[in-house]
Design a protein around this nucleic acid. Structure first.
Length: 248
DNA sequence: ACCTATGTTGATAC
DNA sequence: GGTATCAACATAGG
């Protein structure tokens, strides 16, 4: 489930439940989730430290420790944070605290990541924070279809497949529109739609609460005008959009 | 059973 | 270098 809104919820869980607790054990045996680290590297760096703050940019999270090393966490496609829950078969990485509790990265699909001192240099500005001017400039820089630009984490960080469709639908823009040809008013509308869709998803509890997302499976009609929804692969992902309001 | 789909991202090929 | 495709993982559904 994790796009920006879900990751922000996970960050808040870390902030509320994991900070200030001293780590006394680390399970980093999953060499795929913990790549490129060898087993024990995360344990050596983190054991004895206390988590001090939890941050997020786009879909990437990182947690600072009182002794320097930074723990990077990414939820991948199906990961979530489990704090003080019973150990589970799907826990891919976990730390145990001195008070007996634990924090786990739980993920059936193993596409999540736990990594020391993560490199975030290729991430664009956070989708919930980016300014109107910077967004317009960055999104127009590329040549591909608009949706592909939104999904590119180096353009703006945090937009996934569902949030991209919801944002384009709110802005009444076609996902196929060449990004470099966006007019100023279109870029502005897209920026406003992105911020509104992101904020609403955070408030409502996730990207699945989006109006287009809710309806796309059911009636496959536009929740606003009732016209048929189109479906195609755009930017490598399944895409739904309104045949009337989002005409190219 | 087999094929497709799935919230992401990285490596690879043009 | 930007852009597109495929693979990585595991499960669910038609």
């Amino acid at each position: 489930m994790p796009e920006l809104p879900e990751v922000e919820a996970a960050r808040l869980e870390l902030e509320a439940g994991a900070l200030g607790r001293r780590i006394t054990s680390v399970d980093d045996h999953d060499t795929f989730v913990c790549r490129p680290h060898a087993p024990g590297e995360l344990a050596d760096a983190l054991t004895g430290t206390t988590l001090t703050s939890a941050h997020r940019r786009g879909k990437s999270m990182w947690v600072d420790t009182d002794r320097g090393p930074v723990l990077g966490l990414h939820l991948g496609m199906a990961g979530r944070i489990a704090i003080d829950e019973e150990p589970d078969h799907w826990d891919r990485f976990a730390v145990g605290f001195a008070d007996g509790g634990r924090m786990a990265l739980r993920d059936k699909r193993r596409l999540s990541r736990a990594i020391l001192d993560p490199d975030l240099s290729s991430l664009g500005p956070d989708a919930a924070e980016v300014s109107r001017g910077e967004f317009a400039q960055r999104v127009r820089r590329g040549r591909g279809p608009l949706k592909a630009r939104l999904l590119d984490q180096s353009v703006v960080a945090g937009v996934g497949n569902l949030l991209a469709d919801e944002t384009l639908w709110r802005a009444r823009l076609s996902p196929l529109l060449p990004a470099s040809e966006l007019r100023d008013d279109q870029a502005h509308a897209l920026w406003r739609a992105l911020r509104a869709a992101t904020r609403d998803a955070i408030r409502m509890g996730g990207v699945h609460t989006g109006r287009l997302i809710v309806d796309r499976r059911h009636n496959r009609t536009c929740p606003r005008c009732g016209a048929e929804l189109l479906r195609a692969t755009v930017g490598g992902r399944t895409t739904f959009w309104c045949s009337r309001e989002q005409a190219a």
